[in-house]
């Protein structure tokens, strides 16, 4: 097992009445892509800001590269790269000017660490005299990532890098992160998209300031125990209500082109199909499936709600 590079113990943080983080315990291993997955307002940004020394925790302790986020904040700032959730570069400066500025204030030069950003920067280099404000979302991302990497950080923090950008740019971004991982970087990334969990080595589900589960995506799926079925056929709206009306059904959720149904006990798929046929006269197809990450998160959410 690799060393842990981020260690979080019993960390809590409140803003007035709102408990943004509630007794968080986490450990991130050196060289992994760690995903913090949860909806808006779950506490993702707060946690990342504490780890990047931008916020002070109320209680608890966190270390990054073995340094305390409160006491050793100056050292940590030299060792981490950070890409905030909103585009935070100078929009009135060009691509080249932004990169040069951030290289200089991080006390390095573009030349020194060019190998790190080469793959990413080359894609936007043809536009290097264009002002950052005039770039597309995907290009902004690449510039921001280049700037966050230019001082060769040990840990890279990315706060919702894929929010608001289209699916193509998202795929590209994950490709880049994987390459960076191969160069030895530890990557701590937050996202509201469940399906991006599979891109991470390990993920933590976060909801209302609490960590619901931490594991590898495979581990999370493997530990899912409820029987789950994919249902197709008929119109979604009537079907989902018909399914929920059945006694054997615990929950029914829309899922892509199907409805995912969990039941209180294991059943034969035909049993469900027959019940719907009898009640509603609808012809549906039912098959037992393996849960995916999102099913797991939903199930965890239900556990804390009920």
């Amino acid at each position: 097992m690799k060393n842990s590079i981020i260690q979080i113990e019993q960390l809590s943080k409140s803003f007035g009445e709102v408990r943004a983080l509630d007794n968080i315990n986490l450990s991130v291993r050196e060289g992994e892509i760690f995903g913090l997955i949860g909806p808006d307002g779950a506490g993702k940004t707060t946690l990342i800001r504490i780890l990047t020394t931008l916020l002070l925790p109320d209680t608890g302790k966190a270390t990054v590269t073995g340094r305390d986020v409160v006491r050793d904040y100056k050292e940590i700032r030299k060792l981490v790269g950070y890409m905030p959730g909103v585009f935070s570069l100078y929009e009135d400066l060009t691509i080249a000017e932004n990169l040069k500025f951030f290289a200089t204030i991080f006390q390095t030069t573009i030349k020194e660490n060019y190998h790190l950003i080469k793959d990413i920067y080359q894609q936007i280099e043809p536009f290097k005299d264009r002002r950052a404000g005039q770039l597309s979302g995907g290009m902004k991302q690449k510039l921001a990532l280049s700037c966050a990497l230019i001082h060769k950080p040990e840990v890279l923090f990315l706060d919702e890098p894929t929010t608001g950008i289209d699916a193509v740019s998202r795929v590209e971004l994950w490709d880049m992160l994987k390459k960076l991982k191969r160069m030895g970087l530890t990557i701590f990334v937050s996202t509201p998209y469940m399906n991006e969990a599979s891109m991470c080595d390990r993920v933590a589900f976060i909801q209302k300031g609490e960590i619901l589960e931490v594991d590898s995506p495979e581990g999370i799926v493997a530990s899912y125990e409820e029987p789950i079925y994919a249902v197709e056929g008929g119109r979604f709206y009537q079907l989902i209500h018909a399914l929920r009306a059945l006694e054997m059904v615990k929950a029914a959720h829309l899922f892509g082109e199907t409805i995912h149904v969990t039941t209180y006990r294991r059943i034969a798929p035909e049993e469900l199909a027959r019940a719907i046929k009898e009640r509603e006269g609808m012809d549906i197809s039912v098959r037992e499936i393996e849960a995916n990450i999102e099913d797991c998160f939903i199930s965890k959410l239900h556990q804390i709600i009920h």
């Binding site: 949860g38 909806p39 808006d40 509201p192 909801q207 709206y237 989902i240 999102e294 959410l301």
Partner: peptide, 16 residues
């Protein structure tokens, strides 16, 4: 955007 998976589905049920 950014809504949790359960609420997101509830939202879609409203749409339906």
């Amino acid at each position: 955007s950014g809504v949790d998976p359960i609420t997101r589905r509830q939202f879609w049920e409203m749409i339906y």
